[in-house]
Design a protein around this nucleic acid. Sequence first.
DNA 1: CAAAAAAATTTACACTGGAAATATGAAGGG
DNA 2: CCCTTCATATTTCCAGTGTAAATTTTTTTG
Lengths: 217, 217
Amino acid sequence: MLKDKRKTYHHGDLRTALINAGLIELEEKGLESLSLRSIAGRVGVSHTAPKNHFDGLRGLLTAIATRGFEMHSQEMQSGVEDQPPGKARLHAACNGYVRFALANPQLFKLMFSRTLRDRSNPDLQRAAWASYSVLRNIAHGLDWDKADASGGPWRTEWMLWSMVHGYAMLLIEGEIKSNEDGTPIFEAAALLPDFDYREEDLASMPPPFEGQKDVGH
Amino acid sequence: MLKDKRKTYHHGDLRTALINAGLIELEEKGLESLSLRSIAGRVGVSHTAPKNHFDGLRGLLTAIATRGFEMHSQEMQSGVEDQPPGKARLHAACNGYVRFALANPQLFKLMFSRTLRDRSNPDLQRAAWASYSVLRNIAHGLDWDKADASGGPWRTEWMLWSMVHGYAMLLIEGEIKSNEDGTPIFEAAALLPDFDYREEDLASMPPPFEGQKDVGH
DNA sequence: CAAAAAAATTTACACTGGAAATATGAAGGG
DNA sequence: CCCTTCATATTTCCAGTGTAAATTTTTTTG
């Protein structure tokens, strides 16, 4: 009765236990020195036990990254829903993007590391796309000063994404200095150009990266 | 006479040989699977030989990153000098920033990895500052639509840096898709807001991150 | 030419992730 | 109830990794 795992299996729900332990170890030890053995050890199983649930370390990292994208989506979405449609939501989404990165720096870096995770994993792709869509859906209504000029509709969302992602990265890596409590000196939204905002339909938007229709590169 | 190393030392200039070999191995094997032993092996020395010239793997990576920032500066500077002062130079610098990152993705990631290099190294700091200064000096003349509003003078340069850095990162990691030849679909400059440009003096600008005066955090 | 210092090697150690064979325990069928 | 089957976890082993200490080799210095 001490250990009440309600699972029917051998030892319990090792899969999610490993992901949870991985999330903790990740921020504790850092992405670089994270080890499969220490994650397994934290759960109390041998270092080869994860093999039954994940395709090696890479597979576990992929699952952790997937969880990360789900958290990322939620962090942005929660801030967005409080705000009225328009510029306020855009600002909330951008601030949420950066807030998540600063709260989970190692996880954030893992999520965007091409080599450490398995990008062909469908769950990961779904979660990553959902996360990006929060930003994308809000960005679509924007009418940007140069929007009619050179490029297709991707230009505005890539510009937004680049800005907010770069700001998060530079803050995490300590290149841009932040307040003593870790919060950025400028909110992400303070770096944005002063967009005009207009509502439009979302129909004719192509995907911004290899996701959805384009799944599997 | 076959091996004409004009150095007076024991085996030659092992220090720069290791850096050069490291640069090659880095892009060949990738930042994650780079190994001190394989770098040393490529030069033809034992894996503990680097100890005499660098403070462990971290020291070698720091030296490689330093070299990277020097290359980065040059890549931006070369593009800038051809252009007339003003917006053209800004665009050239931004394009150079991203061009370098795409040409040396692993090196670029190393340069901005807080944990892999030793940020307290003075040579690294100097080189990183010089690289950033190219962008910074050009950014200073910009009068941005919200420049008078919330923040100090850092806001414009951080916005520029974030945008261009994020774009580079997302391209490198394959999140934003590029042309078949690897070049980006949009030049970095095409993502910039339409700045007004005015000349001003550079006197009252505080440093944008822990560099220069602030050396050593 | 000898002493001192620098540079590189050898050896050993504590780690890592992965593969293969083995043990454990739960589920399903007679 | 027992027996088989199969998923799960462990044990053992292996090729790597970076680092430290002692040792050898070479260069520089006096």
